[in-house]
């Protein structure tokens, strides 16, 4: 029954039900390995988090603003972003101009072939 529900892609197959079974087995193995852990480990015994030598901030004071989250990525692609973001100028007539521009390019391509 489950094998009849396999999605064929021409190059591969995908069966979510089998995937779920495999996932369940993997979780089971994980839990099994976890059970080897020391049972006498209690909460509070763990070391404090190391934050570059700074004191751990109080609970509730440690929000990381979303715009800082991918700073590394956006900084690495700065050249790209500096070109693309200004294109989103927000001016209504620019938007119209872009559409007409694409249309003009398509006219040239279609009428030339």
């Amino acid at each position: 029954m489950t094998f009849a529900w396999t999605l064929e892609t021409g190059s591969g197959t995908w069966n979510p039900l089998l995937w779920l079974v495999a996932f369940g087995v993997a979780v089971g193995i994980g839990l099994y390995i976890r059970s080897f852990g020391r049972a006498d480990n209690r909460e509070g015994d763990a070391l404090k988090p190391f934050i570059s030598g700074n004191e751990e901030p109080e609970d509730g004071a440690s929000h990381l603003p979303a715009s800082n989250l991918y700073w590394g990525f956006t900084d690495a692609l700065k050249a790209y972003y500096q070109k693309v973001v200004p294109l989103h100028s927000g001016i209504p007539t620019d938007y119209v101009a872009w559409m007409l521009g694409v249309m003009a390019v398509m006219f040239i391509i279609v009428l030339a072939t």
């Binding site: 559409m99 694409v102 249309m103 398509m106 006219f107 279609v110 009428l111």
Partner: peptide, 10 residues
């Protein structure tokens, strides 16, 4: 062809 572009792009 012209009609095609006028339809497809918008």
């Amino acid at each position: 062809k012209i009609a095609l572009v006028l339809l497809a792009v918008p």
